[in-house]
């Protein structure tokens, strides 16, 4: 296998590794890292253990925008910009709805707003798919959250965005730790909270948007990983962000491996694997963290 990477000789095995398996493995690593970091930041910003890009409908926003783009302009190249736009709009809407009222941003309101928006967006998505058979054909497998069938070129065109998002998140680690103490405290310590929020929000949109553009709406990585990391390294976001990156990459790689091996020769979309692990975890969190 290593030979295929370093001394490529054109044999079938080497070709398989170079053109099919390697891109897929890289994709799993990158998407997993992006989703996990996006989840960590969302949870830190909203101080809400149940927040994650998929629960809050951000992933659905990106998917709808992508489906819309393919519906309007045809497939082929990936319309990453649309994914960012969709992610940003749905994130803003859900955040605004969740923070309405005197009690401010409560976990319950945020999650309810997110699930309603998510329901609406996925209904609209399936509406487009019903209206246009062509779009359905191009996109069906992608919508279940799958890592299969991406080539290196499309991946390379999206990677810069993810890189920017990851670097920004790493740089914001200290500020995020302060923010997670509460906005008042952070302001009292002399931090410009508005800028941190904007920066972190942009990072989340970049990360979630490009992850969805590459692999479809893969759920629950962004929810589960930050909790495991917090259990391992404590509440300091300077450590949470890099560890989330690593663990997210590992989780999605393992999920991908499992999804290919469980029922060979068919394969499950990786999004289904992560949901089967992640949904019980969400229920456990709701049970244990929500004492009120």
């Amino acid at each position: 296998m290593l030979q295929a990477l370093f001394r490529f000789d054109g044999s079938t095995e080497h070709l398989i590794i170079r053109t099919v398996r390697l891109p897929r493995a890289i994709l799993a690593v990158v998407v997993g890292a992006a989703l996990a970091v996006a989840g960590a930041i969302t949870q830190g910003l909203s101080r809400n253990p149940l927040a994650a890009p998929d629960i809050l409908g951000i992933n659905m926003g990106a998917s709808l925008a992508l489906v819309l783009a393919i519906f309007l302009y045809g497939g082929g190249d990936h319309h990453v910009g649309f994914a960012f736009g969709g992610a940003a709009i749905s994130a803003l809407t859900v955040y605004w709805l969740g923070s309405l009222g005197r009690s401010g941003l409560t976990p319950l309101k945020l999650v309810i707003a997110g699930s309603a928006i998510g329901y609406l967006l996925s209904s609209l998505t399936s509406g487009i798919l019903i209206l246009s058979q062509r779009t359905l054909d191009e996109i069906r497998y992608w919508l279940a959250g799958s890592l299969a069938g991406q080539d290196l070129d499309t991946m390379l065109s999206v990677f810069p965005y993810i890189a920017v998002g990851l670097v920004a998140s790493l740089a914001l680690g200290r500020e995020l730790t302060l923010m997670s103490l509460g906005e008042d405290v952070a302001q009292g310590l002399g931090m410009k909270t508005a800028w941190v929020k904007v920066g972190a929000a942009i990072a989340v949109v970049l990360l979630a948007g490009s992850a969805v553009a590459l692999a479809g709406p893969i759920g629950f990585v962004g929810l589960v990983v930050p909790h495991v990391v917090r259990f391992l390294v404590g509440a300091d976001y300077r450590w949470i962000v890099p560890y989330s990156m690593i663990l997210g990459a590992i989780l999605l790689s393992v999920a991908d491996l499992a999804s290919r091996l469980v029922i060979r020769p068919q394969e499950l979309p990786a999004g289904i694997m992560t949901a089967i692990v992640g949904a019980p975890f969400f229920i456990h969190l709701a049970r244990s963290k929500m004492k009120r």
């Binding site: 319950l108 999650v111 699930s115 759920g219 629950f220 949901a275 949904a279 709701a286 049970r287 929500m290």
Partner: peptide
């Protein structure tokens, strides 16, 4: 009621 709804959302996902 709050936990009821949150658990429900989780179960819906599953």
């Amino acid at each position: 009621p709050m936990r009821l709804i949150l658990v429900g959302i989780g179960l819906t996902a599953l």
